[in-house]
């Protein structure tokens, strides 16, 4: 006979910490890693995506190489690379805490995926718009700043939402490099309490809730920047 027993959550771990408060700390770590990684991913991904749509073949090449490298190596391998390899080759990185290395790894991995979305978004804008803006006398920078990017940004929002959810999910591999996030909590606490199903349930629920939060944020953002009768507008 097997029944669920949640009493472990109120048990003391160390000091004033309970399994519940540890769970909350772990959740916070998951969300913090994800947030920092997403900021890196968004910044670099947007930049690389834009480079790939310019008329300059060197810029395109840089954007392409960047994207292909970080897209075609599994995220776990990239994390190991940042943790075990890079600090040996470039000793300066050995000064960074594991947390920072995991954030960089996750951020760069995700930047390649965002770069794909941004490129596809910009390329789906009819080329007339680019030419029209150039014909109006705008510089390349101005045509991106005032014509292409505002549209592209709205276009890539839905895929960006799923990338944000992906960052949260992928942060679960950070446990492999000593980060005390939710998955690490699941594995450690199920051993300490011998309550595997309850521990997995509550951790899974928090991942689920995190995804839900991202979803809700994106709905709010999408609504607030939506242009009436234009792409991205809800049906």
């Amino acid at each position: 006979m097997f029944t669920l027993d949640w009493s472990f959550l109120s048990k003391k771990v160390v000091g004033t910490q309970t399994y519940f408060s540890w769970l909350m700390t772990a959740w916070e770590t998951t969300l913090t890693i994800s947030l920092f990684a997403f900021v890196i991913a968004f910044t670099l991904g947007f930049l690389m995506g834009v480079l790939r749509t310019t008329q300059n073949k060197y810029l395109v090449l840089i954007g392409n190489i960047w994207t292909e490298i970080f897209r075609n190596i599994p995220v776990l391998v990239q994390i190991f690379l940042w943790y075990f390899v890079i600090p040996k080759i470039f000793p300066i990185f050995s000064k960074l805490p594991a947390f920072a290395l995991a954030v960089i790894a996750l951020g760069l991995f995700t930047s390649s995926r965002i770069s794909e979305q941004v490129r596809a978004g910009i390329q789906s804008i009819p080329t007339d718009q680019r030419y029209a803006s150039l014909a109006l006398g705008l510089t390349t920078y101005q045509s991106y700043r005032f014509v292409l990017l505002p549209v592209a940004f709205r276009l890539v929002l839905p895929p960006l939402t799923s990338e944000a959810m992906n960052v949260i999910k992928n942060s679960s591999v950070a446990f492999a490099v000593s980060i005390a996030e939710l998955t690490m909590y699941a594995i450690q606490v199920q051993e300490e309490t011998a309550r595997g199903i309850e521990v997995y349930l509550v951790v899974t629920a928090l991942y689920f809730i995190s995804a839900l939060i991202v979803n809700l944020i994106s709905i709010v953002v999408e609504k607030s920047i939506q242009i009436p009768h234009f792409i991205g507008g809800k049906k």
Binding site: S172, I197, T204, Y207, A211, L212
Partner: peptide
């Protein structure tokens, strides 16, 4: 919706734990 919002590592652990049960 559910599968897409939880990490693969957790699904791997779940299946490994639950199937025997």
């Amino acid at each position: 919706t559910i599968i897409r919002s939880i990490p693969l590592v957790m699904v791997i652990l779940w299946v490994f734990l639950l199937i025997p049960l």
